[in-house]
Design a protein around this nucleic acid. Structure first.
Lengths: 128, 128
DNA sequence: CCTTGACTTGGAGTCGACTCTAAGTGATAG
DNA sequence: CTATCACTTAGAGTCGACTCCAAGTCAAGG
């Protein structure tokens, strides 16, 4: 699978895919004889994983460390688990912040809704 | 309340507070005779609101627009409500992305947990 | 054979959101 | 009276994460 198709399928720009490879977030992808990247299934699963993690805000640097460990095989499982647990904590904390904000937004929208209704009623009664 | 105390109380740097004022996110704060910012209750409530919205990832630009409308009084209530509704949608979408990622993290951590246990068992049996 | 278009590279540029620096002022402690 | 310290300003610098650019290569269609 060429970079354009991967880009299409995962909604990541080709630039981003090359960037991820350059910084060591994705392992060097196999090339055709003419030097063009040819993503295999494992590559695609990794792209998908990274996309997912990035979409939740996990820092690129942490993911580089994690993928580095993955590359080193089973002896790094414990270290990997610790990274994921730490990131899960941070993610949960962010989600809780967002929930708080969501509650406030809901409240404010409701207040505004009432204000709008009152206002319209007033206009109607003026009209009468 | 001086900027250092506000900074302390809301865990925002004094630089950030001045920055917010400079870009028009916070209305110009009253000054003492010697030109030092003196935050009043309304200022503080706004700082708190902005801090909360920012912590959930609402863009500074959107908040500038919103606070601009707040400054213009009741005639902008409808427009404000629309901004908040749009941002609520986006926030919900982000939270759902994060929930998906959280599920995957939970799954992966569990898998790693099992791998670690198996590994330890194997080591124990080798030891025997 | 020539053009087109997708790919390649290294490196520079952009964006959002701060964060820091330098130079200056003014109230308070020793 | 001077030193310290928190404040002030305008403007430059940083950071994370891309995103774009120029110049070059190559396979395929007309």
């Amino acid at each position: 699978m060429k970079i354009a198709e991967v880009s299409e399928q995962y909604s990541l720009s080709a630039d981003t895919l090359r960037y991820y490879e350059r910084i060591g977030l994705i392992q060097p992808v196999n090339r055709t004889e003419s030097g063009i990247r040819d993503y295999n299934d494992l590559d695609l699963r990794r792209v998908d994983f990274i996309k997912c993690m990035r979409s939740a805000g996990l820092p690129v640097e942490v993911l580089i460390d994690y993928m580095g460990l993955v590359q080193q095989g089973d002896k790094t499982i414990k270290a990997r688990k610790e990274i994921l647990i730490e990131q899960r904590e941070l993610l949960l904390a962010r989600m809780q912040e967002m929930q708080k904000t969501l509650d406030i937004l809901n409240h404010k929208i409701e207040v505004y809704e009432n204000a709008v209704l009152k206002n319209e009623k007033r206009i109607v009664s003026i009209d009468e």
